[in-house]
Each structure stands twice: as structure tokens, then as C-alpha cells.
Design a protein around this nucleic acid. Structure first.
Length: 414
DNA sequence: TCTGGGGTCCTAGGACCC
DNA sequence: TCTGGGGTCCTAGGACCC
């Protein structure tokens, strides 16, 4: 049996953790640039705030209902997530951290699953302050179903018999299944397939033809046959991307250079953290697609790197080279994306005797910068092209303190 | 004024190999 | 007159996830 542990309204719960005054009142958390709602407390859901609602469109409702608003704060959420996962890992040797707020647990061989799941839940709530729900079932897809049901009940749902499974699937909306997104949902509903049970009753050939092999796996899992194994270790990433909308649109080349250099620097840091080097770098500029009155364009370029690298200087150099090639005058850009692909392990980089590669000194420089920034805080030391004014940076008007990751923000008690 | 970011996997089609 | 079979690799596009 597999359990899915899922934090309730995770980001909203994190914001509440150190400020009990927000318990019991509606809370929402916004995406980057304070753009859209990406997490809601139950009270905010009841008021009718929908997932993904643009903040500027719901400002009035927020004011009328005294909803507490927060900018997203991933340093905090990441740290709280690690606490939750550490707690969960005490209950079984096999866990898969599936996302920042979800974890699969292999409960094979455990007895009294209802009691055990309840114990897990109580433990996490007590030790971390984050409420979670557990769904337990023979497969991952069914554990997802169970979890959703658990959230509506008392936080734990165990599906340990065919009768229980059938009973739940019969009115389980097909679009709520793990693996059915908007496109597939539209397709299925237009064919009058509205519930998980109806989907399960379709012939497998139909599923293969219309929902591909991915759909077939899900279909089998609905019948209790485990097809999506637990991933116990992380696969090395195949690509990495740093992409972020600006706080304001800009067509200014110097500003775009600053932003591109800055994102490239962040990307290089991520590469080093995973001990990978990039062989290809792509850069793309994007205008604001929500503003059709402005001319639109999405120029991009792929820059092969002569030597696989992950030092900040070489990554910035390649990114700025790309930017220069694609920059178009007369457009207002909303976003730049810097993407690294063709990743290889850092310790497998081939040396080339014909190369006059002088990156070694830059590698060393990057290592020192990482140390400084780790110790004194991100951005303490950076490359000059990243700029000092940075007028394009994120809007984060409602940012909470870094309660667990910054000495200055730790709560003081008397 | 204002609309997120970062990933994975699968398929189809084309280029190329012997 | 007639023009194979079997395979790999790459890319773009489309679906999905949180």
C-alpha cells in the first residue's frame, strides 16, 4: 500500500506558522510579482477566491473580506518543506518527495493502516505545525484519489478494498484524476465520460489511442495494478531554466542586459549546486501576451558552448552573446528566459588539448562567490553586469520575514 | 499599472545509418 | 521494368505535474 501525504494549503499554512493571528482568518499567497493567487486558506476558498485569480482583479474582494495577502516566499516554504519531509521519513524507509508539499510513502508490510496513517498525520502536525492529509491505497493514482477525499473529511482515508475503491470512483470527477489535465478533461467530458469509474470502464485500446501510454498506466492504476513505481532517488536534471517576469516591462537594452546577466548568474549557481555543466545555453525574450495592444514577439536563440561550463562568468558571457543576437528595438519586454540544456556531470567534463580553455580561474572565482553568498546572504557579491539599480526586479509588496533562514528575522521572545 | 516558474514524459516525423 | 527493411537519433510540439 502507498500513502500520499499532502500538506493542506501549504504556502498559506507556512505564512501562518509564526503568526497565529492569521489562524482562522482568510489568507492568500500570490505568485511572483504579486501576480496571481497560488495558495488559499480554507476561509479564502469559502469566500470564493479561485486558484490562479489575478490579484489586481480581486483587490476589492480582498479588501471587503479582510483577506491577508502574502507575496510568495520560497526560502521559507522550502525550509518548512524540509522539516515536514524529515518527519515523514521516520515512518517508512521508502519515501518519494514528489513536490514541495507532497510525499509518497511505501507502507507495504505495515498493519492497521488507518491507525498508522493517523499517527503519521498527528506527528507531522505536532512537530512542524503544518496540517497534512493522508490518502492510502494500492497505487499512486488511487492514493491521490484517497488524499483528495481525506482533505474533505478528517484528514485520513484508506482505500483497502475493491468495494471502497469502486464506491469512491463512481462519483469522482474525471478531471480531478492525477494525469488528466485540461485538454484530456475537455476531450473526455465532450464524449460524456465524466467520472473516474466511466474512464475505468473504457477498453484499454481506446485509452492507449486517445491518452497514450501515460493514460494506460493511469487506467491500470485505477484498477489497482501498480505501474508508477516510487522514485526513491532523484534523477539528475536534463535541463535547467531561470525565467522570471520583470517588475515592469522594459525595452531598454542595458536593463535587459542586467536582467539576463542576473538570471544567467542564478542559473550558473543552480548548475553548480547540482554539480552539472551545460553544453548548450538558450536565451529567449518575451513581450507581454496579456497586452495585445503592444506589438508581440518572442525571439530566441540557442548558443552551443565550446566547453561544458557552470561558472558564472562563462554562462553570463554566453547569455549576453545570445541577447545581443535576438534583441529587437521598439518592443517592450516582460520577461527573459535563460535555459541550460545538454547537461553533463561536472566531474565528467572532457578536457580538450586543442582548447585554450581558461575557465579554471572562473570556476575558482564562482566557488568563492558561492561561499561568500552562502555565508552573508544571496546577492552579497555579484558580477558587475548584473547592475546595481535593477529596476526590473520582482514586485514583492507583501513579503513575510525569513523566520527560519535569516538570523535577523528569527522571532524574539521575552 | 497589474496576469507565475520550473520541470517531466510521449509522439510523430525527418535525417541518417547499413 | 523494377526502387527494401530495419534501426537510431534528434527535434518540435503537445500533454501533464506541482
Amino acid at each position: 500500500m502507498i500513502a500520499l501525504a499532502d500538506c493542506n494549503n501549504f504556502y498559506a499554512s507556512c505564512e501562518r506558522l509564526f503568526r497565529p493571528k492569521y489562524i482562522g482568518v482568510p489568507v492568500v499567497v500570490l505568485s511572483n510579482n504579486d501576480g496571481c493567487v497560488i495558495a488559499r486558506s480554507n476561509e479564502a476558498k469559502e469566500i470564493g477566491i479561485v486558484m490562479g485569480a489575478p490579484y489586481f482583479q480581486i483587490k476589492d474582494i480582498i479588501k471587503e473580506n479582510n483577506i491577508a495577502v502574502f507575496s510568495s516566499h520560497y526560502t521559507l516554504y522550502g525550509d518548512i518543506s524540509a522539516r515536514v519531509m524529515t518527519n515523514l521519513a521516520r515512518f517508512t524507509p521508502e519515501v518519494e518527495v514528489y513536490s514541495i508539499d507532497e510525499c509518497f510513502l511505501n507502507l507495504k508490510g505495515f498493519d492497521n493502516l488507518q491507525d498508522y496513517a493517523t499517527e503519521i498525520r498527528t506527528s507531522v502536525v505536532t512537530n512542524t505545525g503544518i496540517p497534512i492529509s493522508l490518502g492510502v491505497a494500492p497505487t499512486k493514482v488511487l492514493a491521490k484519489v484517497a488524499n483528495k477525499k481525506a482533505k474533505k473529511g478528517n484528514g485520513v482515508m484508506v482505500l483497502d478494498s475493491d468495494e471502497k475503491i469502486s464506491k469512491i470512483l463512481i462519483d469522482y470527477p474525471v478531471e480531478d484524476l492525477w494525469g488528466i489535465g485540461r485538454q484530456y478533461a475537455n476531450k473526455l467530458i465532450s464524449m460524456d465520460i465524466k467520472t473516474a469509474e466511466q474512464l475505468r470502464q473504457l477498453p484499454i485500446d481506446w485509452v492507449q489511442k486517445n491518452l497514450t501510454i501515460v493514460g494506460v498506466r493511469m487506467w491500470r492504476e485505477l484498477w489497482g495494478e501498480s505501474c508508477i513505481p516510487l522514485k526513491l532517488s532523484l534523477d539528475p536534471k536534463k535541463g535547467m531554466c531561470t525565467s522570471r517576469a520583470f517588475g515592469k516591462m522594459t525595452g531598454d537594452y542595458v536593463e535587459l542586459q542586467e536582467a539576463t546577466a542576473s538570471y544567467a548568474s542564478r542559473l550558473a549557481m543552480k548548475l553548480r549546486r547540482e554539480a552539472r555543466c551545460a553544453t548548450v545555453l538558450s536565451v529567449r525574450l518575451l513581450t507581454n501576451r496579456f497586452n495585445p495592444s503592444h506589438p508581440q514577439c518572442y525571439p530566441s536563440i540557442t548558443v552551443p558552448l565550446a566547453h561544458p561550463v557552470n561558472n558564472t562568468n562563462d554562462i553570463i558571457k554566453a547569455a549576453l552573446f545570445g541577447l545581443k543576437k535576438i534583441y529587437l528595438r521598439g518592443y517592450l519586454f516582460q520577461k527573459v528566459e535563460v535555459m541550460a540544456t545538454g547537461l553533463i556531470p561536472q566531474n565528467e567534463v572532457q578536457l580538450n588539448i586543442f582548447d585554450k580553455f581558461d575557465g579554471i580561474k572562473y570556476d575558482k572565482l564562482s566557488q568563492i562567490m558561492d561561499k561568500v553568498n552562502m555565508h552573508f546572504g544571496a546577492g552579497t557579491i555579484k558580477i558587475a553586469t548584473e547592475g546595481t539599480k535593477q529596476r526590473w526586479t520582482l514586485r514583492r509588496d507583501f513579503l513575510s520575514p525569513e523566520y527560519t533562514t535569516n538570523w535577523d528575522d528569527i522571532i524574539k521572545t521575552k
